[in-house]
Nucleic acid binder design. Sequence first.
RNA 1: AGUCUCGUAGCUCAGCUGGUUAGAGCGCUACACUGAUAAUGUAGAGGCCGGCGGUUCAAGUCCGCCCGAGACUACCA
Length: 1094
Amino acid sequence: MYREFKTLNLPQIDQEILAFWDAQKIFDRSVEERPVENSYVFYEGPPSANGMPGIHHVMARTIKDIFCRYHTMAGQRVERKGGWDTHGLPIELSVEKELGITRDDIGKTISVAEYNRLCRETVMRYKDRWDDITRKMGYWVDLQNPYITYTNDYIETCWWLLKQLFDKGLLYKGYTIQPFSPAAGTGLSSHELNQPGAYRDITDTSAVAQFRIKGAENEYFLAWTTTPWTLPSNTALAVGKHITYVKVRTFNRYTQEPITVILAKDRMGAYFTGQTPGLKPEEVKAGNKPIPYLEIVEEMSGASLEGMEYEQLMPYVQPDGPAFRVLLGDFVSTEDGTGIVHIAPTFGADDFRVAKQYGIAALLVKDENGHPMPLVDRQGRFVKDVTDFAGRYVKDYGQEEERPVDVDIVIKLKEENKLFLSEKYLHPYPHCWRTEKPVLYYPLDSWFIRASALKERMFELNLTINWKPASTGEGRFGKWLENLQDWNLSRSRFWGTPLPIWRTKDGLQETCIGSVALLKEAIEKANAVLGKTQTVPEDLHRPFIDDVVLVSESGEPMYREPDLIDVWFDSGAMPYAQWHYPFENQEKFWQNFPADFIAEGVDQTRGWFYTLHAIAVMAFDRVSFKNVVSNGLVLDKNGVKMSKRLGNAVDPFETIAKYGADATRWYMISNAQPWDNLKFDVAGIEEVTRRFFGTLFNTYSFFTLYANIDKFRYAEADIPVEKRPEIDRWVLSALNSLSEACEGSYADYEPTEATRKMMYFVDEQLSNWYVRLSRRRFWRGEYNEDKISAYQTLYECLITLAKLMAPVSPFFADWLYRNLNEVTGKEPHPSVHLALMPAPDASHADPGLEQRMDYAQRIASLVLSLRKTRKIRVRQPLQKIMLPVLDTQFVDQVNEVKDLILAEVNVKVIEYVTDTSGLLHKRVKPNFKTLGKRLGKHMKAVSDLVASWTQADIQQLERSGKYVFELEGESFPATLEDFEILTEDIPGWQVASDNELTVALDVTLTPELEAEGMARELVNRIQNIRKTRDFNVTDQIAVVLENHPEVVPAVEWHGGYIRQETLAASLSLADNVPEGDLLELPNELQLHIQVKLV
RNA sequence: AGUCUCGUAGCUCAGCUGGUUAGAGCGCUACACUGAUAAUGUAGAGGCCGGCGGUUCAAGUCCGCCCGAGACUACCA
């Protein structure tokens, strides 16, 4: 017996199947039963178990799961080693938050060892929840042997990779400008800067300063800044190569002194009103915003300004090298400011870069230890060398002062005739999310990977990667690679992979340690030379690794560079480190490199996708993945990003518990392409449940209801397809087309297409056509070949669907598969996930059949529509329909499906109309596609002409099969191909049409037809009674019907039919039916009827 | 600010290389069906295809600009 169920309960199916998978170790088997030689490599991007899983994780993991399952079913071995991302700032921050400490406390109120111990504990905090969601959503990944980034083995591989890069000269220490929070005394990561609310609008005092040109009288460059406090650190000005500059004579608005200034021509309008010959100094006032000018003296290109020198604006500190020159910078624009950019290499990333490129010095002083430092200290205060402002904070850090230092700087410039203009300026400025104080961009020492050296190669290799969607690979990722900057590896943090570089105090000698063995060797050497007793720490993390002192070639002690490496390096190292390559598993590694497939959110484009790619290219000159799917975000149903703060985050546990994993997965995949953002709405899950799973479940229930009665166990040999009825062959053909299409979609990483095709098949083809038309074959008559054919056919549809849908909805698919296979034992596999995808069977494909069934569906639909408009119920038989013949095969095609159509629409005969004598009213349209190319601009005239043709013209065209357009002296011959001729109407008939198909319905009712209609009504009513009385499908009955002239012909002529349909042993008419039910029949006829079991 | 995606019916989405009545499902309304029935069928209402301009005989589709949403990147002075 097939299992029968009253209602569909997806969550219960989840439970049942999960228990089955566990008990039978189906996941393990699905891997082990596939040959090692034919493997499909998948890399799991490690999540951090430090946060709770969200619904977006279900999305991302569904995509991963689909293709892994698909390739398993395609016969490949798909190992999926899980992993955990365990290092990094978010973990540190959550520990700090819980302890109520800041970074400064670490090493003071809490030891680094203790702090890291807490990080290690915290990092797996939600592991249970993750394991739980992984299981419940049906994501198959190996969580028994995951890689964990904090283990010594993992760190060792990272070290080995760093050593590879180090040996290739790709690691260097540099000085860069990074976000820095003076209030918190720490550098900030871009992650922190991107916290919500980090950028806030603040009002700054902006200044346009005058930089006096060397060797000229009263000539100045104008440069704008929103940070006047950086002006004492100015050492250069940048102009745009292709920008046009002008030299303008005017007066200083504050001092009224005559000046000549240089600025971008495009920016004139922002500062000047118009030329005023004979302008007097007193006409230029401080209150004027744009001011008049005397004349434009000269025009020049930015390129011609390159190399010009100017006098230092605020000479507190002298540069140690060339400075105060004009440079070319590609970042210079004329959107605001003056088109000349003030460069302070210590406080701007662009500034730093362009200054370095030109060999321009930065302004630095020595700190108490003799180390160079910028003119602002780490607390955000001017150093003593900036005498006028020494000790003043450069931004608002809560200090009490009369005026911000920016204002005092502006005043000083004004007094010295160095200020052209000062204004308040409102702009977004980043703030430290913890202290809420402004961030400074500050020079810090960092280690870098010279990624830019390999960017062409990375770009080239990227072209070989199949990106889904392609635009992310070409656009976002490609562009990123084109403009690649060096990778800042350093993190001044505690919980992470330590940088394995040791240096002498003077920094002249350094070594990179690429393995624990090398470390041991180096330690032994150092112990010998330095007389120490160090050993390799048991834990490679800080602080233990910091204690290790090595020795240089020349015998000097070397100390570890205190930085950690960027956690993204950890994740990018995962292909190697998950196997502890090259220290172990060499063969395993090479079998699993590169990945065939990875998938993550599109936000990982410059995260994990990049680090994987970069490390593989730099260390191996290879790609690390061949196919990548980057999915979009999961938004709430209003398109708003989900967040805890807004309370619109969807709890995946609740969702899955309520709707089941399959409906959730199916909804997410079918609703939108994975790379489009998904507006997550549970109403969509309900719809999928009803429309797809519900329909399929109903189909299964229908099958089991009758298969159990008939004891169909698929024991009979397959009935050859060519011996099966038309409708069976049709659905098998459609099923075969579906298999092919789904396989193509899966292979092409297009899961949405696959699901939509399956939905169409289940709803439109299987349920609403095949089953609807075949119903009687299941419940009527003998267990004969036709019936067996129906069972075999429906069975094949169901089991094939189970396979096709298995990657997306693994639970329901397995449930369906097992319910079927349990009885028939046709398949050797206990689970659908161990089965192979159905091989497309060309012998099932029959395009001609699919076309004529399409005709049948559309003709039936048209007839039903006609009945509807004439209010003639379907039970009332009608005599005939007429079909205008479309082409030579049309009659043959329709005849093949004639019986289906007639049965479906309850009509006796089909007549074909082929004459062109005028019975049919036709319409003609030009074929724009074929004619447009030839006619070009005449197309419109032709369109008008054709529209004006009469029926006679159309007949003429049909008879001759050609037409010649004469247009402006040119002849354009056209054939029938160049026209679309449609039957529009058959005068005197009820006509409906759908594209090329036209149907006419004869609505004449004869007494015979009416009697037959009445007979069917009676059958229907009696069936209802049977049903309400809960009679068995096989119970015989006796029927007595109240006599009435309207029912007499029905009973007389069709009594046998009525009895047969209703299993009535007797049917009689009586003038009085005392204990009967009251029947409501057409024409408001009410009669009594008595139905009894016999 | 830059780069990239997206914008089609009330909602979620199709619309292939440009071709002339712009589609589906859901929702809504009405009717029908009642041996799959908390299903199903038929019909109806509902669209300046985000806006403007361009290319073309022809634009939802190609190009440019703008507006709106989102992501990523970013101290543009």
